[in-house]
Design a protein around this nucleic acid. Structure first.
Length: 706
DNA sequence: GTCAGAGTTTTTTTT
DNA sequence: AAACTCTGAC
């Protein structure tokens, strides 16, 4: 194959801006890519262009994606162009990249390559423990808020030494101290949390310029996808790595910035212009995904954001069907609506997997699941209570972690008495105190159980220590699957559930078997170490996890989880004020605008058919609320929609003697009325204990019963 | 160490 | 309304 032919092939079927983006390889490039504008195609061809035409070594290319799944997909698509050489490239998330770097360079910082990665749960319990150690009243100070503030600080590259509390709430006064204690505990446990992965890599590069230099010389061409959702620390990383050669291509869309609450700063788009003044900019505005109707609706909605750079997507896919807007009575009715449309779709020869239900918050999946379960529709929930959150899976993973990283105290505490080994609360306390007094790790204290004063269960603890040491030897050279089997057998963990006849425990056994399938697939794919396996699983996102599910099933997920994906038929549920936009985002303009971005993301996932629905009544915490249809719904011009369901605007005429139902007070009779239109006020006598109340129908949605 | 019953909390979004 | 956590009796 000649060089020229390759270039022609690579550029075939691309539009002009796309082609320019592929061949503009040198120097900084800002690629503004609207939803569905074929940016993945551009990215993969750009990488293929670098290797095939510019004859670059794949080893010198870095591509950072938002999820592991996106990385895998990109790898497969690049593979079509360049074959196995694709494996030499680093294509991964920021976090995965940092783990790879930190495992190699751990010795430069204060930990070993066996470090554990703390998940949000472990992080929460460690912070809570630190607060207890510092004698803070966790009733008074919410550990979750502390966790939140520390995470935000780390995203800004702050340390306990440089952190200054900016808030004025009571918790803000204690955060700094907890931050310091938490940092100390992490060090003791040889553990890093998610934010550290990025932060410590930045620290590594700042402190050891020669280490930075080797990576600068390695990553000659850098690509960053979903750039609008990078945070400050991540941007810093990109800047450092590309400082010498400036070959950095960032791809983003400010309208799809939806992670500000996690420290993402779309101002990084502006900083890029500031820090790379020679940057070129290319806009991709042709959408290949959605119908014209869907796109026009999305454009109309996003126009309402004041804080934005004008950009307008256009499509050549044809008008398509109108957007269905359904006013549901309640969440169950809403779910039944989706169900009936899905059944119709499949009845016409479509697949369940064409259909995806999106919602603002995980809790909304429940009503849909109930209905789908009853109707025996195959479905898969992405996110929520995931596989790795289950107790048995966390236990088994804790075994792997404790054995791989003996400093991992949290994991050790989790398993020391599971299954029961008669090592009780008191014994554990004594071991911890001993470790503290002798300046040892908990594992070392366990190994010296016989030396601990007054330790009743010394015999059992010693046996536990032997078991862990035995397993540590077994880990060497074993595949992850072999090792997993060893752990399950030697620890008696599997036996614990195998003996039980409870239905719940049978499910747990099945989950353990599922874990076995996962390690097998890992061994086949990578043949990595136990540490690699642990790193991979702790960095997996919800979207990554349903890879193994190959049934024809429909999917349920949050709008956040749907980012970057596309589906022929999309349902967006709960398009109501206080749900979407969420009530907790209504205080600030930025908050509402980010919700609008999120709605824009939801709408632009749909290729052919979009259903939007809202409920007249919604119950939350056992309380019924009546929400107005979302403002975003009003922002879509009527001509693109087709409305069904209950009349969204109830123009009820009230009269004395009429029976009505109030969402909270129940059924009552109108005994008096005054004012007209929006000013109208009713006096209603309720049958319930609430008696007589004055009600403004403009604010409270009453149902007329007769 | 287990269990029943009381009391409390839950709904943003997640690498 | 349902799920979780705590507490005290066995």
């Amino acid at each position: 194959m000649t060089k020229q032919l390759d270039a022609d092939q690579l550029l075939a079927s691309l539009n002009d801006p796309q082609r320019e983006a592929v061949v503009t390889t040198d120097g900084p490039l800002l690629l503004l890519a609207g939803a569905g504008s074929g940016k993945t195609s551009v990215m993969t061809r750009r990488i293929a262009y670098l290797t095939n035409v510019k004859k670059l070594d794949p080893w010198n290319i870095l591509a950072i994606t938002f999820t592991n799944k996106a990385a895998r997909e990109m790898n497969e698509r690049v593979r079509q162009w360049i074959g196995d050489a694709a494996d030499d490239m680093w294509m991964c998330t920021f976090h995965a990249m940092c783990v790879k770097i930190l495992r190699r360079e751990a010795r430069h910082l204060d930990f070993t390559p066996t470090f554990t990665i703390l998940d949000a749960d472990d992080q929460a319990s460690m912070i809570k423990q630190c607060m207890l150690d510092l004698n803070h009243d966790i009733k008074k100070y919410d550990p979750a808020s502390v966790q939140w503030i520390i995470s935000a600080a780390k995203n800004e590259l702050l340390t306990p030494a440089t952190f200054v509390a900016t808030g004025t709430r009571p918790v803000d006064t204690i955060v700094r101290g907890v931050f310091a204690a938490y940092d100390h505990q992490l060090r003791r446990a040889n553990a890093l949390d998610f934010d550290d992965l990025i932060g410590k890599t930045v620290l590594l590069f700042e402190t050891f310029p020669d280490v930075l230099k080797t990576y600068q010389e390695k990553f000659l061409y850098i690509h960053v996808d979903e750039y609008q959702d990078t945070n400050r620390a991540q941007y810093q990383l990109i800047r450092m790595l590309s400082k010498e050669h400036h070959n950095v291509c960032v791809v983003g869309d400010a309208d799809q910035a939806i992670y500000r609450w996690r420290g993402a700063d779309r101002a990084n788009l502006d900083y890029f212009e500031r820090d790379f003044p020679t940057r070129k900019m290319i806009k991709l505005e042709q959408n290949y995904r959605s119908t014209d109707t869907i796109l026009k609706a999305a454009n109309a909605v996003i126009q309402n954001n004041q804080n934005r750079v004008e950009k307008s997507l256009w499509s050549t896919k044809g008008t398509g069907e109108k957007i269905a807007v359904y006013a549901a009575q309640d969440a169950e009715d809403e779910a039944i609506y989706a169900l009936s449309k899905i059944q119709a779709h499949v009845g016409e020869g479509g697949r369940f997997s064409d259909c995806t239900v999106l919602y603002r918050a995980n809790a909304q999946s429940r009503a849909v699941e109930d209905v789908l379960l009853q109707a025996a529709i195959p479905y898969h929930v992405v996110g929520g209570m995931t596989f790795y959150d289950r107790r048995e899976i966390k236990d088994v993973m804790a075994y792997l972690r404790a054995i791989a990283n003996p400093q991992d105290e949290i994991s050790l505490l989790r398993i020391i008495n599971v299954p029961k080994r008669s090592i009780g609360e008191g014994s554990i306390r004594k071991l911890l105190d001993y470790a503290h007094d002798e300046d040892l790790t908990l594992m070392d204290a366990i190994k010296r159980a016989k030396l601990v004063d007054q330790l009743k269960s010394a015999e059992q603890v010693a046996r536990f220590a032997e078991m862990i040491e035995h397993l540590q030897e077994r880990m060497i050279g074993a595949t992850v699957t072999e090792f997993l089997h060893d752990v399950l057998r030697t620890s008696g963990y599997r036996e614990m559930y195998a003996q039980s006849s409870k239905e719940e425990d049978r499910t747990r056994l099945e989950n353990i078997d599922e874990l076995d399938r996962i390690t097998r697939s890992f061994d086949r794919r990578r043949r990595g170490t136990v540490l690699d396996f642990l790193a991979e699983t702790s960095l997996m996102t919800d979207v990554d996890r349903n890879e193994n599910d190959e049934r024809d099933a429909m999917r349920l997920m949050t709008v956040h989880a749907s980012k970057g994906l596309e589906f022929p038929v999309v349902f967006v549920l709960g398009v109501e004020e206080t749900v979407f936009p969420h009530s907790r985002s209504l205080d600030t303009i930025d908050g509402v605008e980010e919700e609008r971005n999120l709605f824009y993301v939801a709408v632009t996932r749909a290729k052919d058919k979009l259903h939007l629905s809202y409920c007249l009544e919604r119950s939350t915490f056992g309380q019924v609320h009546m929400n107005d249809p979302s403002r975003f719904l009003q922002e879509i011009p009527e001509e693109y929609t087709e409305r069904t369901g209950a009349d969204p605007v109830q123009e009820a005429r009230f009269e004395i003697g009429m029976t009505v139902r109030h969402p909270q007070y129940g059924v009552g009779v109108v005994t008096d009325l005054s004012g007209v239109g929006e000013e109208q006020m009713l006096t209603i006598t309720f049958r319930s204990k609430y008696g007589t109340k004055e009600i403004v129908p403009r604010i409270t949605r009453l149902r007329v019963l007769g």
